[in-house]
Structures are given as structure tokens and as C-alpha cells.
Design a protein around this nucleic acid. Structure first.
Length: 210
DNA sequence: AGCCAGGGTCTAA
DNA sequence: TTAGACCATGGC
């Protein structure tokens, strides 16, 4: 009998405590969600630190493509990411750079608009939906897949993983976002280390064998 | 030296 | 519909 979505959530909460939100600034979420694509988080932090208080949609909208590329270069894939960020910024401007202006737009519509932007796929769209627009969309990323695999769910594809979480939890964006952040913390803090099983709070549920 | 990092797109079979 | 090539830099 494998661990359920709810049991996993409580185990992670017990181990790591109150999770943080990605960012309370909607634009910061969008910007970083693109930069982090297949890229180490440390590079994203460095890039954003160099940007400082200029990490605003108004500032970025005023940059040329070349200027933006230069700023985000340390994150890799900078040509593609610069174009995506510009398209995403233009999209956000339709909502006056204010996530509350999209309050009446259905989640499915928002998701479709995001996915229509080149460079925005399922993960990036869901990150933005949850953390910037507070919509219940469970984020499935490399960490989520890795964790479920180690918990004995190696046979689940992304659709099944989504169902595992969304059918086992209240439809609450706060819960989804916090859950994803807990998975992240767990994978970075403990589960990435090899061997990890002695220190792992999920040891009793972990199917990983070293 | 090489491999990996919180992806996404395009193409060929 | 799916596997593989490609995008690019920094850290270890």
C-alpha cells in the first residue's frame, strides 16, 4: 500500500514546516519561471539579484531584446527565454500588469492564453497559474516526478500524477502551491543527496534502494 | 572533463 | 504519439 497524496503532504509538513510562497509579486513569478527552465536555481537568483529593484514589468518592457538577452545570459537558452519573457510581459500588460485584473477570467482561459505563448509549456503555465494568479493547478516538474517515482509510483505519467494530487486534495491554490514548494524543499535539501535514505523523513514510504 | 540543472519546441518515423 | 536533437550557461 503506497502513500496517499494527503499522507505525503502531512509527512512533508511535519518534516519541513510552513512552506514559503514562490513570490508575492506576480511578475517575479513569471520572470523566474521562464528563467529556471532546465536551469539551476542558483543562476536564476544571481540574475535576479543583479537586476535588483528593476525586476518589474515596466522596466523589462522598456528593454530591447539584446539588452534583455544580456541580462539573463547566465541562465542559459537566453535567446529563447528573452523572447518568451517579452511575449509574457506583453500578455501581462493586457491585465495592466496586475494579477487582480484577471480575477474574473476562468482558469482554463488563462491557462490557454499562457500555453499559446511560445516557450511556455505545461509546467511554466501551472507555476504562473498557482503562484501568480492563485489558481488551483498542480505543478508537475522534474522534482515531482522524481519523488513519486521513489515513492513507488514509477508507472504514472504526468496526467496520472496530476490526478494523484488533484483528486486527493481540496481544490485550493494555496495548498497546491505550498505542496509543490514542500516537494522542492525535500528534493533539494535531502533527496538529492546520495545516499539519502538514512536522513530521509519519507524513509518508510520510499521505494528507492541503494 | 563531463554532466546536470525545477523545460519547451520541432521533426521524423 | 513519441523519441531524439537542439537550445546555452554556470557549478561542481
Amino acid at each position: 500500500m503506497s502513500i496517499s497524496a494527503k499522507e505525503l503532504y502531512h509527512a512533508l509538513r511535519a518534516a519541513y514546516g510552513q512552506p514559503r510562497w514562490w513570490s508575492d509579486e506576480a511578475y517575479t513569478v513569471m520572470f523566474q519561471a521562464v528563467l529556471v527552465q532546465n536551469t539551476a536555481w542558483g543562476n536564476v537568483l544571481k540574475t535576479c539579484a543583479a537586476l535588483g529593484g528593476r525586476l518589474t514589468p515596466e522596466f523589462v518592457a522598456g528593454l530591447s531584446t539584446e539588452e534583455l538577452e544580456r541580462l539573463i545570459r547566465p541562465c542559459g537558452f537566453y535567446r529563447a527565454k528573452a523572447r518568451t519573457i517579452q511575449a509574457l510581459t506583453a500578455w501581462f500588460r493586457q491585465y495592466n500588469f496586475d494579477h487582480q485584473a484577471a480575477a474574473r477570467v476562468p482558469t482554463g482561459t488563462l491557462r490557454g492564453e499562457l500555453l499559446a505563448i511560445r516557450g511556455v509549456g505545461a509546467e511554466t503555465a501551472d507555476v504562473i497559474l498557482v503562484y501568480a494568479f492563485y489558481r488551483p493547478a498542480f505543478v508537475i516538474d522534474a522534482y515531482t516526478r522524481r519523488l513519486l517515482k521513489r515513492l513507488g509510483y514509477a508507472f504514472l505519467n504526468d496526467a496520472a500524477i496530476r490526478n494523484f494530487f488533484e483528486s486527493g486534495l481540496p481544490e485550493d491554490a494555496r495548498v497546491y502551491g505550498q505542496y509543490h514548494w514542500l516537494i522542492l524543499e525535500h528534493c533539494i535539501a535531502v533527496c538529492r543527496k546520495t545516499p539519502c535514505c538514512d536522513a530521509c523523513p519519507l524513509q518508510s514510504a520510499c521505494a528507492r534502494r541503494l
